[in-house]
Design a protein around this nucleic acid. Structure first.
Lengths: 186, 186
DNA sequence: GGGTTCTTTGAACTAACATTCAAACAATTC
DNA sequence: GAATTGTTTGAATGTTAGTTCAAAGAACCC
């Protein structure tokens, strides 16, 4: 049902989604949706939660097979930008940003994802600095925050279908910036 | 009236704004709003247009008084991230991103702002490369696109009130990244 | 099987807005 | 100043989607 809600939101947009849409996606009636979520925002929070977890998990798995920090960085970067403007997870994450101002629960989820992504990069960067593969231009934390924020900006343009920023363009911008900040050549 | 609509949207959020809200902000009745904009989306496009123009104008003016490319870059960067999560213009720009998938008019506006911001950085970067103040790590276009996308990512977190990314943090991340990509020390 | 609780449904009800429009009002033209 | 055109209003209407709820159905327990 949380998945159904996610699909419905990605389909119609967060602001236009109806209870009926969620019910249809889940193959049930709107009464049943209300039965489980009398407070509809609770459902949105669960969708957000699942989306954040799924996204973070994807990123962890993306670097899982790689041994060297350089390879890990390359894999992390490749997974950092949506390859497709219709990417469900990416679209949901951006939609959810709109809810963060009004709802502390959503704000916590967004902040926690940011923090975890930064921590993920941080571990790669510190490992690479240790082996001498990377020569960081500034503090590891600063570099990690830069990469995460850059990913978010690039992803926003990809998902919004900016014609001057294709998924390929975005990957390339991110890669080049990472090369510059880490001194690592892939 | 376009201004009134902008205020109403920033107040209540794009998805919750009512015709009555716009009418109230403009000091007229809802009938009058419909009289001028039978197709309400036309009004949203005008709001977007004005917001994009105003934002770009602010950025041009921010660098206006500076003679050297280094100073111009510093000023451009300082204006590149909202100082306040409630910044009206920044909030509107992010709200409008949501409309770009469905409406070509909005998509054009977003793309045109991106292109103009890139062009603005490009002119500064090429000037600085000419005087030898900057040593660009990669193509000027690549650097310009990186800075604009990074601004957008940082701004998104500031506006969404990410507790791990204050306006001050964001400015610092942007500045450091620019130092690295241009070799310019402010 | 009878009883109890949990689920599901969809029709009826409600609330919130958008939209229409006749009438009043203001401005402009000749 | 009469006529015409442009503007504003707010009450009436229509539409959409959220919400309630009684009744039916399923699952479970003794």
């Amino acid at each position: 049902m949380v998945n159904a809600a996610g699909r419905a939101i990605a389909d119609r947009g967060l602001s236009h989604v109806r209870i009926k849409d969620i019910a249809d996606q889940a193959g049930m009636s709107s009464g049943s949706v209300l039965y489980y979520y009398p407070e509809l925002n609770d459902l949105l929070v669960e969708v957000h939660h699942e989306t954040v977890d799924r996204y973070y998990q994807q990123r962890v798995e993306a670097i899982h097979g790689d041994a060297s920090p350089s390879d890990q960085l390359a894999s992390a970067l490749a997974a950092g930008v949506p390859h497709d403007p219709d990417d469900l997870t990416a679209r949901l994450l951006y939609e959810m940003h709109a809810l963060c101002e009004a709802s502390p629960a959503h704000a916590d989820l967004m902040t926690s994802l940011f923090d975890r992504e930064v921590a993920l990069y941080l571990s790669i960067l510190e490992a690479g600095a240790g082996t001498g593969e990377f020569t960081l231009s500034t503090s590891p934390n600063q570099v990690a925050r830069t990469l995460v924020a850059l990913e978010d900006g690039l992803g926003l343009h990809v998902v919004s279908r900016n014609r001057s920023m294709s998924p390929t363009d975005a990957s390339e911008v991110l890669r080049r910036c990472a090369v510059e900040l880490t001194g690592c050549t892939f």
